[in-house]
Design a binder for these strands. Structure first.
Lengths: 240, 240
DNA sequence: TTGCTCCTCACGTCACGTGAGGTGGC
DNA sequence: TTGCTCCTCACGTCACGTGAGGTGGC
């Protein structure tokens, strides 16, 4: 049977057959005087075996050594490969989770530009750094519960509250000024809404903000405001 | 800062930096008279952004288009990539399951040669073809329950029973011969042990053996024995 | 002449790693 | 002279896909 026939019957390309010959994986039974390759039944069987092993994702080099030296390395080869694939899967799965989280957060934002994306990635990495896996799980659930509108509303509220504080400080008000009480209370309720009341999460959040000053700045909290905010929250009974 | 410095600080190779320049991803701020590359803070930032995006597994071509044209394709790019990775994960996971099953079955056998491996692959593919996912799940559980010794014992028993039948037929015994009753009963109990009494599994098993004659032959059941076996089982009340 | 099958180079893919051979200043 | 950093080619990787240019028989 000619190479075209074999290709058609096995559904692989002529080039691939050439390549396998080059690798010494599958040699034609003989050549015609014109130099055309001819394959026999044994070659068809060999090819099917090659394809079976290839389907396991084995590198062709290992396929060859399995088929040429049919000794006892089969189990070893499979187990080695199994480990490789296991590693790949766990790797890709981790990546998938990151991507999903990044995508979800991107969809949240108004303008999904490249800059937004970069910031989101940074934030996602930060989250992974400061929260435990379980906490992230919990946060994701809360996120679901609240729903997109509520989230958007929160973002609005935060902007509002932060700018109120900024202005108060600019006007020279004391952090303990009674007019700031509602703002302080709103602040705390926003944190509670985010954390679902989970103390550990609140504390992770706090260390994160303390360690990554740039994060606060992004949302409009200058380092100079931190002490002010701390004072303000203490007046309504917030304990660190 | 020189290329060596930059490489050391970001943990990537000089060659990679060369390559990124070639792709137009990261161009040095300037060159010294000797032709040495010099990078500035902007370049360091750019590089970090490249590495962030690369960490998501994005092809460098997409990294570049994200960083050069910072318009609104960010979300699209991420979602497209997300789909790619999703497909990869499900692909590799499927492969992983196949490999695990093949490895498990290989470990079972006495001589894990390449031929054994090929047979095992074929059988695994067959299993996937004739049993539903749930049935395979159930079978895997039963496999666990029975434990390796029991499995080995079953294999022994099957060989025993099959060769008894073969000899009986060779001696010219009728399939209904009373001396075959214990053999017939053993046969049925072995099937029950395998299926856990699940009728659907037994029926899948039967269609599999009916469709793939080569399978039976492998275990010593010649096609000519089939009618004999059918008769024999019927005498002890086995209904197809 | 056109159409078909086959042939043998040989380049391209993706993200670099790894020399090879050379330079300039300590 | 030796050692260090830098430079520019250029090949190799893995499993092929895709021409390019040619042949032989219908």
């Amino acid at each position: 049977v000619t190479i075209g026939e074999l290709a058609r019957r096995t559904g692989i390309s002529v080039r691939t057959l050439h390549y396998y010959e080059e690798l010494g994986l599958l040699r034609p039974l003989q050549r015609t005087p014109k130099g055309h390759r001819l394959y026999g039944d044994a070659e068809l069987l060999q090819l099917q075996q090659i394809l079976s092993l290839r389907a396991l994702g084995l590198p062709l080099e290992e396929v060859r050594s399995l088929l040429t030296r049919k000794d006892t390395t089969a189990l070893e080869t499979v187990e080695r490969h199994l480990e490789r694939v296991r590693a790949e899967v766990s790797d890709r799965t981790r990546l998938l989770r990151t991507l999903e989280s990044v995508a979800a957060r991107l969809r949240q934002g108004e303008k999904p530009t490249a800059e937004q994306l970069l910031r989101t990635i940074e934030e996602t990495n930060m989250l992974d750094k400061y929260y435990t896996k379980e906490q992230l799980e919990t946060l994701a659930q809360r996120h679901e519960q609240l729903g997109p509108e509520r989230i958007r509303q929160s973002a609005e509220d935060w902007k509002q509250v932060i700018s109120t504080v900024r202005e108060a400080k600019a006007k020279g008000l004391a952090p303990t000024d009674p007019s700031l009480r509602p703002t302080a209370e709103k602040w705390i309720s926003l944190i509670r809404e985010f954390s679902g009341g989970d103390r550990a999460i609140e504390s992770s959040l706090e260390t994160m903000y303390k360690s990554e000053r740039s994060l606060g700045v992004q949302y409009g909290i200058e380092p100079s405001m931190e002490a002010f905010i701390g004072e303000m929250l203490r007046t309504v009974g917030w304990k660190r």
